[in-house]
């Protein structure tokens, strides 16, 4: 028996919205400790990693580990039928399920929707994310990071991110010209202004803005985002989801030929 009930179903809707342009089909692994998912995009330059802890669910039960192979597009179609205030319950009784049941219930418990999504058998890539001590960690407003990426992507396809002890600089060079936005360390009480820099070693790395803009679809999951960088390692962009877990995106840096 597997059952997971989310009090705020809208979070699950937001997660699926945030990853659906990046990955088409995924294996979600359910275990006693919660749900996890890892998948690379088709170009194999980005990786999505989702972890949802059992404690974050209203009810959670998973008697034995199971793998749920899902089409994200089809999952998204079913989740469109859930209201933003609904609870969402995932359920299956089978050991090797061929479908996953969904129950959506509104706050008054006056409307209950039930769907089943056919599952797919997907080759699971055995991906492992190496433990990395990032030499530059930036925590800032997710909306602000999203705005910077969106603005700069009209000038260039790539952005160079350079850290120093005091600031982080986002630079672009394009056919029409060049520019940069520098954000300084700021210990404001307001989330929207706060910028936390933990810089052991400054880094200078270049990334494709197209991917960063896709990651930023997760902006509504968290008011802050953390950018974790080390030379020659993929960038790790993390959105923490309150008590529930985290959604992480990894992106390979652009390298000079």
């Amino acid at each position: 028996m597997f059952e997971a009930k989310l009090q705020q179903g809208v979070i699950f809707k937001k997660i699926v919205d945030a990853i659906k342009d990046l990955v088409k089909s995924v294996n979600i692994d359910a275990s006693t400790s919660g749900l996890s998912m890892q998948a690379m995009d088709s170009a194999h330059v980005a990786l999505v990693s989702l972890k949802l802890n059992e404690n974050g669910f209203k009810d959670y039960r998973c008697d034995r580990p199971i793998t749920l192979g899902l089409s994200i597009e089809n999952l998204s179609k079913i989740l469109k039928c859930a209201g933003n205030d609904d609870t969402i319950t995932l359920q299956t009784d089978e050991e090797e399920p061929s479908s996953l049941k969904f129950f959506f219930e509104n706050q008054q418990a006056s409307k209950i929707s039930e769907f089943s999504l056919n599952l797919m058998s997907l080759d699971s890539e055995s991906l492992g994310i190496p433990d990395t001590d990032y030499s530059s960690v930036i925590q800032m407003s997710s909306a602000e990071f999203s705005r910077i990426c969106k603005e700069l992507s009209s000038i260039s396809e790539t952005v160079e991110i350079e850290t120093s002890k005091e600031s982080v600089k986002f630079s672009v060079q394009g056919d029409i010209g060049a520019g940069s936005i520098t954000v300084k360390n700021n210990q404001s009480d307001k989330d929207v202004d706060r910028v936390d820099l933990q810089i052991d070693q400054p880094v200078k790395l270049t990334f494709a803005l197209r991917y960063l803009n896709m990651f930023n679809k997760a902006v509504s999951l968290s008011s802050t985002v953390s950018l974790n960088m080390s030379e020659e390692n993929p960038l790790m962009v993390e959105y923490k989801i309150d008590d529930l877990g985290s959604l992480r995106f990894y992106l390979a840096p652009k390298i000079s030929d």
Binding site: M40, A43, H44, V45, A46, L47, E125, S126, L127, G128, I129, P130, T158, T206, A208, P234, Y250, A252, P253, K254, I255, S256, D257
Partner: peptide
């Protein structure tokens, strides 16, 4: 000119 590294090997090397 810049290129993007395929990350398959990186993430497979546990």
């Amino acid at each position: 000119q810049m290129s993007q590294k395929n990350m398959t090997d990186y993430f497979k090397a546990k």
